[in-house]
């Protein structure tokens, strides 16, 4: 988009939407949308409250733990599936099922099995993120160029050398792509888990705000959450570009 010969930066239209928000809020059209300026000033109050910091801490903890398990289990399983045909054929149908299944339906099961607490939320987060990580790691190993494998053989690389010096790097762009999408899904998972098990983290905070009709507080927390999620996703995309510069040249 260019205006009078100047290229407008990509996200600049958000300013326009922000103005529209302020206008709608000021006009008092609806109780549910307070002016953006009010929301922003509330935001500074909210982030200083103990309740917000507790929610943020709990969410971050559940998110990091969930992502850790998703990566720590997902990558090795995916690599093993890529290397072992039998394992691949046994597991792949289920990975595909869980990749597209509405995992929200499993949260009640996790609640009765693991209690209404952190454990269930962490497992929800892991379940949202892990399948795409497995699938991409598998794809990464599967697409490794045959001639790279043969090159390793012909120069006499030991299996261990071949794995760490060639296979891992050759599969890395796909693995990282999977981790990025998995983490974005995990962000959604941690919030869905907290909403359904609404006594922890932001789930509890939302209950509190909506019970007391604190609209500005609600929007302030939403802005923080969305901004965090967007920052995480952009940062991961940036990392992926840095590391995957050679992906297209294989």
């Amino acid at each position: 988009m260019t205006l009078f010969g100047y290229r407008l930066p990509g996200m600049s239209s958000l300013i326009l939407w922000g103005l529209l928000w302020e206008f709608v809020g000021q006009s008092g059209m609806t109780f549910f949308v307070p002016p953006l300026s009010e929301v922003l000033s509330t935001l500074f109050e909210v982030v200083q409250t103990a309740a917000f910091q507790k929610a943020l801490y709990e969410t971050t903890y559940a998110f990091l733990a969930g992502v850790f398990f998703a990566i720590a289990i997902g990558i090795p399983v995916g690599i093993l599936m890529g290397k072992n045909r039998l394992l691949d054929e046994l597991l792949l149908p289920w990975v595909n099922v869980f990749l597209s299944a509405p995992l929200t339906a499993l949260v009640p099961v996790l609640m009765v099995l693991f209690g209404f607490g952190m454990k269930a939320i962490i497992i929800t987060t892991t379940l949202f993120g892990i399948w795409i990580i497995i699938l991409n790691s598998r794809a990464g190993v599967k697409q490794i160029n045959r001639s790279l494998v043969e090159m390793a053989h012909s120069f006499g690389a030991s299996p261990l050398d071949a794995f760490f010096k060639i296979y891992f790097w050759a599969a890395l762009p796909e693995i990282l792509g999977g981790v990025r999408i998995g983490i974005i899904r995990a962000v959604k998972g941690v919030i869905i888990g907290q909403l359904l098990i609404s006594i922890v983290g932001f789930g509890a905070l939302f209950e509190l705000y909506s019970a007391n009709f604190l609209m500005a507080h609600f929007w302030a927390v939403l802005i923080v959450l969305f901004a965090l999620a967007f920052t995480i996703s952009e940062f991961l995309a940036y990392l992926e570009r840095r590391v995957s510069y050679y992906a297209a040249k294989r």
Partner: peptide, 11 residues
Amino acid sequence: QAAPLAALIPL
């Protein structure tokens, strides 16, 4: 696309 839109449900 990146945000956890489920958070909008209470609203």
